[in-house]
């Protein structure tokens, strides 16, 4: 049986504590972070995504669907004698996130086009390519046909704004998406709709 003096026991205890702390200290910076991912698999694109509170696929889907339903139900479209021609203008990103707002308008346009109640003209994104193609085939077409491209009944604009708040316990983000259908001749706003999204994230109480 080994008998240790009081001093020796204390010293041994200190050394053990130091060793533990050294291990903790050495494993401190730059570790414990995920470097790789697990298995890859296909998921449903329409599933609700809540990986974090940042703008995501569900927000795009919700917004585009709500906007499309609202516009289709509005008399400006539903009671129009002929399907009006619309040009998508920019939906401006006024948030504190890098949101590709084209994702919203593209999905919105797909849903609207499926209804066959409206027609869309080329927008800023593909206008350049359309013009190039027209110039290429200019000799084959009449100049007057260019007028058809600028013959817009309505233009569609919008904004995405956000308010983000955070404290030690939780983070909250509020998105406000507004879209407007404007008559470019009179400047009259014929339709407007707003979608609001709130996402809250509670910080875990205890974790690694």
């Amino acid at each position: 049986m080994i008998k240790l003096t009081k001093h020796t026991r204390f010293a041994a205890l200190l050394l053990c504590a130091a060793a533990t702390l050294m291990l903790a200290a050495c494993s401190g910076p730059g570790t414990g972070r995920e470097q790789g991912r697990g298995n890859t698999y296909y998921g449903n694109a329409e599933d609700v995504e809540t990986v974090n509170s940042a703008w995501g696929s569900t927000d795009i889907q919700m917004t585009a669907e709500r906007m499309a339903q609202s516009m289709l139900a509005d008399p400006v479209i539903s009671e129009a004698a002929a399907a009006p021609k619309i040009r998508l203008r920019e939906v401006r990103n006024l948030t504190s996130e890098h949101i590709d707002t084209k994702g919203i308008t593209d999905m919105f346009r797909v849903q609207m086009m499926r209804s066959r109640k409206v027609r869309f003209l080329a927008d800023n994104t593909n206008m350049g390519e359309v013009m190039e193609e027209r110039e290429f085939t200019e000799s084959m077409t009449r100049r007057a046909e260019n007028k058809l491209m600028s013959d817009t009944d309505y233009i569609l604009t919008g904004t995405v704004r956000s308010i983000r708040k955070q404290d030690a316990d939780r983070a909250d983000v509020y998105y406000q998406i507004t879209m407007e259908l404007v008559d470019p001749q009179s400047g009259e706003i014929l339709w407007t709709e707003q979608n609001q999204i709130r996402k809250s994230t509670d910080n875990r109480r205890i974790g690694w």
């Binding site: 702390l21 903790a24 109480r205 974790g207």
Partner: peptide, 22 residues
């Protein structure tokens, strides 16, 4: 990170007791 996260506690303990580099 969690309000009480073990990584932070360990690192702070290491910093207070052993080395600032933890």
């Amino acid at each position: 990170r969690a309000i009480i996260n073990m990584r932070g506690i360990l690192q702070t303990t290491g910093s207070i007791l052993l080395t600032r580099g933890s």
